[in-house]
């Protein structure tokens, strides 16, 4: 188990180290997220009440689409370099490859979210209850579910032609529970809903996360065969 975690860490570290050199995906995701905030403001031009109502949905849609930019690259071999081959040969479990990639994506998307959050808050003039643990639970669980499902689907789509076009098509229907539960719990917290009303939403996020933590153990190796 310690060995497994160490290899997961190694793989994640290498991904992040390489990303830190060029910052390609990071910059693209962050700028995209901010751009979406601006575009939505122009397109919807919401009044005070509408702002509060659409804010959680807007926030999550932005996170999902921005994250998609990074996810698509996880398993895509561009620039004449096949990123997976060396890992497939190495003495690591297939699942460690999945969790390494997922961990790197989680860190990357997490940083983008943290950077975008205050900007969204300012643009839409929404005060975020930062001391409310339920807000963070919603953000963390939603992001975790998204990244786990997204990394899995990215590996799956990488086996097909035009993987980047295919990924959103395959991912979003499967991601529906996260979309609903993340938006509803974040929105509920902002609207000061009772915890009991939101409990089911959190439960959905947990179940989804557990399913996509378990699935790679059973199915991920099939995605990497050739």
């Amino acid at each position: 188990m310690v060995r497994f975690a160490r290899k997961v860490g190694l793989i994640a570290f290498r991904e992040l180290q390489a990303e830190a050199r060029t910052k390609e995906a990071f910059v693209a995701m962050l700028v995209f997220a901010l751009l979406v905030a601006v575009v939505f403001s122009f397109a919807l031009n919401p009044g005070r009440e509408a702002r509060e109502e659409i804010f959680p949905g807007l926030l999550w849609v932005t996170f999902f689409f921005a994250g998609l930019l990074g996810l698509g690259r996880s398993f895509a071999g561009d620039r004449g370099f096949e990123p997976l081959g060396g890992l497939l040969l190495a003495p690591v479990d297939r699942a460690a490859i999945f969790f390494g990639k997922a961990a790197a994506n989680l860190v990357l998307v997490g940083i983008v979210e943290l950077a975008a959050l205050p900007v969204f808050s300012a643009f839409f003039d929404i005060r975020l209850p930062l001391s409310d643990g339920r807000l963070w639970a919603s953000l963390v669980l939603g992001t975790l579910g998204f990244i786990l499902g997204g990394t899995f689907m990215a590996a799956l789509a990488a086996n097909a032609r035009a993987a980047e076009l295919l990924l959103p098509l395959l991912l979003f229907p499967v991601l529906v529970p996260v979309v609903i539960a993340a938006v509803q719990t974040t929105g509920g917290v902002l609207a000061r809903a009772l915890t009991e009303e939101l409990a089911f939403g959190y439960r959905i996020l947990v179940v989804y996360t557990v399913v996509f933590l378990a699935a790679p153990w059973l199915l991920f190796e099939y995605l990497l065969e050739s």
């Binding site: 290899k7 190694l10 793989i11 290498r14 180290q17 390489a18 990303e19 050199r21 060029t22 620039r79 370099f81 096949e82 990123p83 081959g85 060396g86 890992l87 040969l89 190495a90 003495p91 690591v92």
Partner: peptide, 28 residues
């Protein structure tokens, strides 16, 4: 196993040393 194929299995963004160090740790 040692495999030398058409693909280098090296990450172009990292240095030569970083690439080898990664694999050295991965292989213990």
């Amino acid at each position: 196993l040692g495999f030398l194929g058409h693909e280098s299995y090296l990450d172009p963004r990292l240095t030569a040393r970083e690439n080898l160090s990664f694999y050295a740790r991965l292989y213990d």
